[in-house]
Design a protein around this nucleic acid. Structure first.
Lengths: 351, 351
DNA sequence: TTGTACGCGTTATCAG
DNA sequence: CTGATAACGCGTACAA
């Protein structure tokens, strides 16, 4: 179909072995010969066949990305970071989208994919998930983002600490009835839900407040879901005076519910989201911001390192989150200045 | 490294050729032998090598996606639609992100990629772009989304009609000074900018209004950019009473500028965006909505069809847009009901 | 219906 | 430093 090493070898008057060596920059090739071969290859417009190379070496120079979502804001941002980093390392990106973990879906054909890629980057999928069952059976480089598992490289944020900080912020404003908008019904929650829930509860209990199931509503990580959750919360006999939403997208929906009901965010009901969505500022939404691109690129770097040096010690990196206080929690004229920020990094993650 | 056809053949007591035929469901295999082979393969946990198959057949069963962005909302949505459709056809997705066309960047190594995939889906990149130069030199199946080129399958919306409809809507509300927030400086604009601009100007001129360069500001397709553009517009000697923004993300920024300046959207300044962003409703933003997932999946289907039947007539599909009127253009108590909608599909695209 | 044997384009080994 | 040659794992004429 195309021009092959053989053609280049013939045209350059050398063997295919030498062509291969020259093209891959081996030091054991006479500089003059190499130059000649390079020119010949260029002239013939030679392009190597990745399939043949893969068959011969066993390496594909591409990486599989396993993710539950592509278009959710936070996932798209992480994907972007991953793609940039892998491309910089001349690795191709093979995308595999699982779909919502709570929805019924066929298990991903990881055995098939496994032969297509040199390693996997897995985003926010619990290591114990049946989706990944096959993955850990085989010997294959894996880098985790947003989760961790024993003996596997991973990069994540301290979800528990982030949620705790958000809740403590609401408590410090004097709120005692604090509602929660979480994601999915409990069946098979996204991996980030549990730690965020634990942080929320821990902050409450430290303040001597018992968690109240009536104040917890599912928002399905969508704008609409968040809106409905907020309506249900406000419909209660004793509605909360403050709400923590596990994602900014749900918090946006909650804001809409507040607006439609004529309540002023930060005055009538305080609200804090999670993610650091680029539009949170537009809404004046307080949020726990996380470094999404960095999560992606660091996760990619972990895999690249593992590929270069298999069996090296696996790193677990915890990236810092940051509470950004805006008018949705302190009101337009809140005593806390708009720019008030409290950092929450790995250094005090254990608090 | 792994178990191969040879192993299966030996274990099943047949030849590798028969194994290959059985595994791929050829009719010319005795049902009993096939069942036996399938069981043996299952038992040995056999997985075919895509590299070997690709080398042998010349087909890779994967598709390259060329896109300027991953995490911009509209692109992420289209990507999602593409991925779902390709996966349903058992094609793998290889993602290649170009980066902003206006920023300096190296040309994509399409010659290299070309051997990795069976075809390309190109999103919102002008066919004349130097980035694609190599692509059209080679004989390779291509499906375009958001652009079109002679003799190439493509799916897009009528950007001109969409922009015209938005502008006509503002004109019909009585506005005469209408501002524009476009994307990038003119050097190497995104492919969608030109037709949207033409639609904007056409509507103005039909109403007897000459376009005023002072009323056109770049917003770089970001929230921040949109905010700054709106500030510049309002700083003018004769500020516009209405503004059309080429993307919802820029419109959100514009809304923030209005809020910060104490102007009421829809009352003081009317605003219409473009995309149908999921958060437009939260903001009460009027917008020209486009079916992003459908653009993606239809683009994927076009490529699949081309792969199945090379040289078949290439389709150009124009999907409808829809003007959704909200309070940002008619005010909170606008005469136009909130749900007012006007469709703008292929049928009246020429209007 | 099944088996034999060759080709796909590289890389790696080993001898020169 | 270079060349011949054997893998790599699968698909497929062709023969049986």
């Amino acid at each position: 179909m195309g021009v092959t090493v053989k053609d280049v070898a013939r045209a350059a008057g050398v063997s295919t072995a030498t062509v291969s060596r020259a093209l891959r920059g081996f030091a054991t090739v006479d500089p003059e010969t190499r130059a000649h071969i390079l020119r010949t290859a260029e002239r013939l417009d030679y392009v190597g066949s990745p399939a043949a190379a893969a068959l011969s070496t066993g390496r594909t120079r591409s990486i599989g990305i396993i993710t539950p979502y592509i278009s959710r804001w936070s996932f798209a941002r992480m994907l972007s970071g991953i793609e940039r980093e892998l491309r910089a390392n001349e690795l191709d990106v093979v995308l595999y989208c699982l779909g919502d973990p709570s929805d019924p879906h066929p298990a991903p054909p990881l055995h098939r994919l496994r032969r297509r890629v040199d390693g996997f980057i897995v985003m926010s999928v619990a290591a114990e998930s049946p989706d990944l069952e096959e993955l850990f059976k085989v010997e294959v480089p894996v880098s985790l983002i947003g989760t961790s598992a024993p003996g596997v490289a991973s990069v994540l944020i301290d979800d528990t600490a982030g949620a705790r900080t958000a809740t403590e912020h609401l408590l410090s404003l004097g709120h005692r009835r604090i509602g929660l908008i979480y994601g999915r019904e409990n069946r098979d929650p996204l991996v980030l839900e549990r730690p965020r829930y634990l942080g929320f509860v821990a902050a409450l209990e430290e303040a001597g407040i018992a968690p109240d199931p009536a104040l917890e509503q599912a928002g399905h990580f969508t704008v609409e879901g968040g809106e409905e959750a907020m309506r249900r919360l406000l419909d209660a006999d004793e509605p909360p005076t403050a709400v923590f939403a596990m994602s900014d997208e749900m918090a946006f929906g909650a804001l809409r519910a507040l607006r439609d009901l004529g309540r002023e965010p930060g005055l009538d009901v305080a609200l804090v989201g999670f993610d650091g969505h680029e539009m949170a500022d537009v809404f004046g939404l307080s949020t726990v911001s996380q470094p999404l691109e960095s999560l992606g690129s660091q996760g990619a770097r972990n895999l690249v390192a593992e590929l270069a040096q298999p069996g090296r010690p696996r790193e677990v990196t915890v990236l810092p989150t940051e509470l950004i206080v805006r008018s949705s929690s302190v009101g337009p004229d809140g005593a806390t200045p708009r720019a008030a920020r409290r950092r929450h990094g790995p250094q005090d993650a254990g608090r």
